[in-house]
Amino acid sequence: METTEISVDIDDSILVERAQAGDYGAFNELVSRHDRKIYRLAKRIVESAEDAEDVLQDTFLKAFEHLDNFQGNSKFYTWLVRIAVNESLMKLRKRKTSRTVSLDEPAGNGEDPVVREIAVWDGDPEQRYSQEELRALLDGAIQELKPSFRTVFLLRDVEELSTEETASALNLSIPAVKSRLLRARLDLRERLTRLFKKKGDDLFAYL
């Protein structure tokens, strides 16, 4: 099959069909459509740009190798995210031999989530900071979370996978995904509020 010109309006599923039929240009278009987001996801999980580059390459090579197994039951992007998460976690486990990286660890100690910083934000962070500055702040905050929490947050809230898709990608139960998501969101809220709050405008801490 000859490589044809690809317009931006073409749906991923059409490109996948073309790639499965041997149109390599279609596969390369899928790579350039999704590489930024996959790179960002990998970088936030593995905490290293260099490792994220390897993850990115391995993810697309795996996707290419296994393209015929992709059934189209999920979105191509969701399938790609699953591969990238597996590759990232493998990388993380390999690197951090001294520190256990497990997604099965209990989500906190069963206590109620705690909120300390209660303050409105000073305007819209997207207006206050450049994209670059904001990205650095957000990346810094998320690195503080345990891998098991930040991975759930990234899949649910950044990559917009459903609870079920996240549970299945990470081999977790649905309640485990929900409880990690709650804690991750509140934890990040806490950290971002410290950065973005209106100075001198704290409400009394409660709970």
Binding site: Y39, I118, A119, V120, R185, T193
Partner: peptide, 24 residues
């Protein structure tokens, strides 16, 4: 208090969702 916590949680999710990924 809960209103502020809810509002800032919503903003936290949105700011992560809204930031453009960096080019590879």
């Amino acid at each position: 208090n809960c209103w502020v916590v809810f509002d800032t949680t919503k903003k936290t999710v949105n700011v992560y969702k809204g930031t453009e990924p960096q080019a590879v």
